[in-house]
Every structure is written in structure tokens, then in C-alpha cells.
Amino acid sequence: MAGTTQNSKLQWLRNPGVLAALPASIFLLIGFAGPLLMVGAYSFMPSRSFSLNQIPTFENYISIIHDSYYLSFFWSLAMAVIVVILLFIICYPIAYGMAKLFNKWANLVTALIAVPILISENIRLFGWVLILLKNGILDGSLQSLFGVSASGLLFTVPAIILGLVYVYLPFTLFPLVIGISMVPDTLKEAASDLGATRWQIFREVELPLSMPGLMIGGILTFVLVLGSLAEAKILGGQAIVMIADDIESAFTFAQNWPKGSALSVLLIALSGFIVFLLFRRVDLDRVIGRR
């Protein structure tokens, strides 16, 4: 009947959300879910196998527990905690300024901070190598100006932390800006009018209302640091081994795909769990759409 063809025609204007979601969803199903399943499957294959037609086994997970991999997990977690705390301290004043203070300058500041994300991480980290190197920019300046040497900076844990803070700063900052700008000034004024102190206003009004932004910023950074690879390798040398490094060497150097897969599964499970907690608490329509 004419009515039914009309109905299907009108769906374009009425509810084509499903159609619009399809291309990207199908692509990610093939490109994201597929590889993840593959990693999961490989993690149950016997050590050093390069195909999936073996008898499934738990040996990789058991050997991970027996080996000292917990140390890499510990370092990754420790780095993630330290970096997130440092970044909150560093970013909060800037985010506050961008949300409430800079007005027309806020766009410029946003651009200046966003541009480095678009420059290859390797190049920027290499810049830090040049600065921290023995006879590098910092050491060389100190020597020629004050005669003091600062040669042992590169390939240390603080250098790694510096690199991580440097690379992930925008990922903490931007969600924080969104979070803080979600708090209307009138609410703070009302709280102050009702007799709240500066600290009480922060704790009772600003913090809870900007929480979605803080959580997204904190967790995004946490998860990214957890899986970071280049910082520890380029700035840390052999100082510590983080978990992504272990995974990479299991796949490449040791040519042990099942072991690398099992480690990946553990890392994915850990990150996934944290992200799941985040998504349960945050309404994306409100944070991104300011609805």
C-alpha cells in the first residue's frame, strides 16, 4: 500500500538513528571487537603457538602469576596514580581559569594547549631527551651559567613521570574545563549568600557538580597512562618496565603471542573495569551536549 512506502520513506526524517549508527558500528565490530576476541582466544593457546587450532590452556595466566609480572603491573598502576594526582593539581587552576576567568582568551588558550596533541608524541618526547641529556639543554645551561652539573636526569623514574605528565596534560585538562563550566556561578553565589565558607562552597557545590568532568578527565588519563609505552622507553631507558612494555616484548622480542595476549587480557580487564565504573556514573548527553 502507498501508506507503507510512505512510512519507510519518512523514516529518514523521523528515526534514522539506527541507520546512521550502522557504518561506524559495523566498522568497529570488525576493527575493534574482532581483534579483542582474537587476543582473548590467543591467551588460552599454548606458549609460543602462532595459530588458534591448539587445545586451550591456562598455562599463560599461571606463568604470569609465577613470573615477576606483578612488578610491571605495580609500576603501571603506581605511575597512573601519581600522574593523575599531579595532573589534577597542575590542571585545576588552568581549567578554572579557562572556564571562568579568561573569557575571550579561553579559545586561544584552548588552541595553544590542544595543538601539541596533534604533534607526534615521539617528537615531543625526543625534545625532552635533548633537554635532559648529559650535555643537553638543561645540563649545558647549568654548567655554563653556574658550573653545576645536572647530568643524571635522563633514564630515571622522575623523567618518566615528567614525560607522562607532559603528554597526558590535555587529556586531564579539557574534561576538567567542561566539568568546572558545568557549575553556574549563581549557585556559588547562592551558597556564599547562605553563609558557606570558601572551602564549604568548593566541597558542597563545586566539587559534586563538576564531578562528571573530573571523573572523565581522571579516568581517561589513568587508563591511558596504564597502557602507555613510549614514555617509559624513550625517557626511562631501563629504569622501570611498565606493563605495555612487557606486552610488546612478549609479542616481538620473545615471539610469544599467547603470553602477550594473556598480559593484554589482564590489562584490558583492568582498564575496562575502571571505564565501566565511569560510564555507569556519567551521563554523556549532559557532559558533551551540556543538556
Binding site: A2, G3, Q6, K9, L10, L13
Partner: peptide, 11 residues
């Protein structure tokens, strides 16, 4: 509308 059924006319 003016005697003509318009149910099936799109907007």
C-alpha cells in the same frame, strides 16, 4: 484538504 486526501503527501 480541499476535498483531496493528503495523508500520503510528504511534508
Amino acid at each position: 484538504l480541499k476535498g483531496q486526501v493528503m495523508n500520503n503527501l510528504p511534508a
